[in-house]
């Protein structure tokens, strides 16, 4: 079991590094999809079956396809954009490393956490998550529909061609 954890983690970290360092946007999307599928495996390890399914459907099924769609629509596959200067790139890697060390050192200092509820392995099943979602979190769930509506209106407004003659 711990071997499975380390294997999934290694896949995730290596493909995440490829997302950063690979030049072609199509390759970035492919490696991000690999990373997300490994993350769905982590969700299954954590007994969050509903989240694993939703993660596969929403992220790798919808969001990544949206990325691929935009890349193909805008014909961005050629890596024509020059990279940042070498100094900036080195500084970016150093900053990321220092950020990692600081966060790691901060989490080393945490005290031990005791579980609030006795251990059950069934909290990630659809019935339990659904009960919590529709009892305690009903209002945020309904409000998220308003968020989606405004996001849709915003996306359509941004995507619309603006005519230079219209001044209204």
């Amino acid at each position: 079991m711990i071997f499975l954890f380390f294997m999934l983690s290694a896949i995730m970290v290596i493909s995440a590094l490829f997302v950063v360092f690979s030049k072609s946007p199509i390759n970035n999307v492919i490696f991000l999809i690999i990373c997300f599928i490994a993350m769905a495996g982590h969700y299954i390890l954590l007994n969050a079956q509903f989240l694993a399914v939703v993660h596969i459907i929403v992220y790798t099924g919808a969001i990544m396809v949206l990325f691929l769609f935009v890349i193909m629509l805008l014909n961005l596959n050629k890596a024509i954009i020059p990279q940042k200067s070498k100094l900036t790139r080195i500084m970016a890697v150093i900053t990321g490393g220092i950020f990692f060390l600081v966060l790691l050192a901060a989490t080393r200092q945490t005290f031990e956490i005791h579980a609030r509820y006795p251990f059950t392995s069934e909290i990630g099943l659809v019935s339990n998550v659904g009960k919590t979602l529709f009892h305690e979190f009903l209002l945020p769930f309904e409000l998220s529909s308003v968020l989606f509506l405004s996001a849709m209106v915003g996306a359509v407004m941004f995507g619309k061609k603006d005519h230079p003659n219209d001044d209204d």
Partner: peptide
Amino acid sequence: AYHSDPAGQ
């Protein structure tokens, strides 16, 4: 998962 609390999910 470690707290057995579905609110996090």
